[in-house]
Nucleic acid binder design. Structure first.
Lengths: 334, 334
DNA sequence: ACGCTGAATGCAACCGATTACAAAAAGAAC
DNA sequence: GTTCTTTTTGTAATCGGTTGCATTCAGCGT
């Protein structure tokens, strides 16, 4: 008879009711009498009817979905944030979709900021253009943020985290402390660098030697190579890197050249990704509450969707995690 | 005047043409005369008109999107596959959305397999129920697969990879070789275990001691603890783990207890995730062509969407990567 | 001047649900 | 039995583009 996908009128016909009633059974069952409801449900089962979302979305002018824009899915750092987001969104009836801003062309990203595609947007990438994003769907910024954009931000105190990291090194007796920065222009890079400088200055120590980096493993490795190239007597005895991934690259490189951590150099990371607890030595780092960041971001977005237009910031606490990669400064320089 | 989002009729009115013409300018510009087109484009600019995707999708009966279902976004293994997928999908005019099958409830996943939500599905998780998936949208399975489901599969030869790993260890002189398996029931776990057994048998060696695991870092750490608990004289001198993540956990644990890799134990992983090249020692492993897996999966999906109904398998080659974590068996057992 | 062809455009039905409003049915009260 | 509520159901407009078919008009041949 009908090879096509059944529509709501097919169900209605079979159940002997109008399409309106079928629709009510679907989205507002309690207004339909028990008997009619049973009839309709049976008809739905028999026809194998499935709702067409495009049609519902068109009528409702909403999509029931939220899109998260992530700079780089390969960074395990983001996945736990996404889990936190999903844990809040799912009970609220929204589903989460993730798009990688690196993988997709820059232009096409704005396509996600359409009310006809998503009801809201959680942006985890600070390098997106502000102008395209405003005036479209509700947006919340998490972790990174976009300077020009008035939207709620959920973040950590990056500067304070850096201060804690550097003070930990200072407590261990280090005075020549280097920093490996994140990508230039990135808001996180800048805050962490500023915190580093602030902590050193507060303790009367000279400004740090800064090696360039971009948060990636490979850039950490290069920083390691640069550190090795510094004459031994001048080498920083401690290095604070702006991401755990870079710290991994750094440690791998210097260990490969016979350096022992933390005897020859103490290393601090930032993020506390799962892996670094299992390295040899385990990495000392600054823990970000990733799950909580995700949960708060999702909650703020739900608020915004519900009409709350405040654009205030949520700042979550970080935590110093002392592990084996940092130690007291060597008594006798070899 | 109008506070509402402009629709196509607003543009049409301003340009002095019909909605049909505006629509044509949008989706089929060459059929409209140059002059009219200019007029319409100007009107679009002035009104700030943006297409409503729900409406277009409803009419077209397609969405222009593909959903990838990933078991666990925190595993960096998947992100490169996703990059490969996006690199094929984007030029074809499809956009990619990612959903984490762990983060979302099981039931809600089937909601993604709706033609009104996505034009196709790439499933990277073998643990999903087959029945819900068939008969909905075109599906391609990548990496893992679902035994009952007739859909094209893009995968590697897991058994052959395991054989290569074990033969590498045998060449180095090892005879007591252990395996740390993936989660029971997983198709990859089983193929890799089978390959391990096959290679050992082919060389007249006894069946491997098998430690349980589930691909995660933590389960690798536990396997390390179990290995340490084996009396020294009986300890396997080489361990092949079914994932790199587990190998990291394993090495971290045994190094923590004074074991030196590869002197005391050789360790092989599987996957070649970026990080393992930077560990100390760098991990020997089996490389999966992740980017290529993603590209092939996306291409097969496009084929399917275009009506190609074959359900054949694509098998991509793996590669043995020799690094520092494997070495010749120690001459004199300490 | 007249018919013919093809390009450009408009009309209006359509995609598949939702929902305001109206009508009908069922109870309640007297 | 009649009137007034309250509940249940149906009618038809609507969400916002798309497209088959019809129409208009310019250009061309005879």
């Amino acid at each position: 008879m009908e090879h096509q996908r059944p529509k709501i009128v097919d169900v209605a016909r079979l159940a002997g009711v109008s399409t309106a009633t079928v629709s009510r059974v679907l989205s507002n069952p309690q207004v339909v009498s028990a008997e009619t409801r049973r009839l309709v449900e049976e008809a739905i089962r028999q026809t194998g009817y499935r709702l067409n979302l495009a049609a519902r979305n068109l009528r409702h002018r909403r999509t029931g979905g939220v899109v998260a824009l992530v700079p780089n899915l390969s960074n395990p750092f983001f996945s736990q944030i996404l889990a936190g987001i999903a844990s809040v969104l799912a009970p609220a009836g929204y589903n989460l979709l993730v798009a990688d801003t690196r993988a997709e062309g820059g232009e096409s990203l704005l396509a996600y900021a359409e009310p006809s595609r998503a009801d809201g947007l959680i942006v985890l990438d600070g390098s997106l253009p502000a102008e395209g994003l405003s005036r479209r769907v509700p947006v919340v910024l998490a972790c990174e943020w976009i300077p020009g954009l008035a939207a709620p931000r959920v973040k950590i105190d990056n500067r304070q985290g850096a201060v804690m990291a550097v003070e930990h090194l200072i407590e261990l007796g280090h005075t020549r402390i280097a920093h490996v920065a994140g990508p230039p222009g990135n808001v996180l890079s800048e805050a962490r660098l500023a915190g580093t400088e602030q902590a050193l200055a507060a303790h009367g120590l000279p400004a740090p030697r800064v090696f360039p980096g971009d948060f990636t493993l490979e850039s950490g490795r290069r920083a390691g190579a640069e550190w090795l190239a510094v004459p031994r007597a001048e080498r920083p005895t401690a290095v604070f890197l702006a991401s755990d991934a870079m710290a991994c690259g750094f440690i791998g490189e210097v260990q490969h050249h016979g350096i022992t951590v933390p005897r020859d150099v103490s290393v601090m990371g930032f993020d506390d990704i799962e892996l670094v607890a299992h390295m040899t030595p385990p990495l000392s780092t600054i823990r970000q509450p990733r799950e909580a960041i995700g949960r708060h971001a999702a909650q703020r977005l739900l608020d915004r969707i519900a009409g709350d237009d405040r654009a205030d910031d949520t700042v979550l606490p970080v935590e110093l995690v002392r592990r084996g990669s940092t130690g007291i400064v060597a008594e006798t320089p070899v």
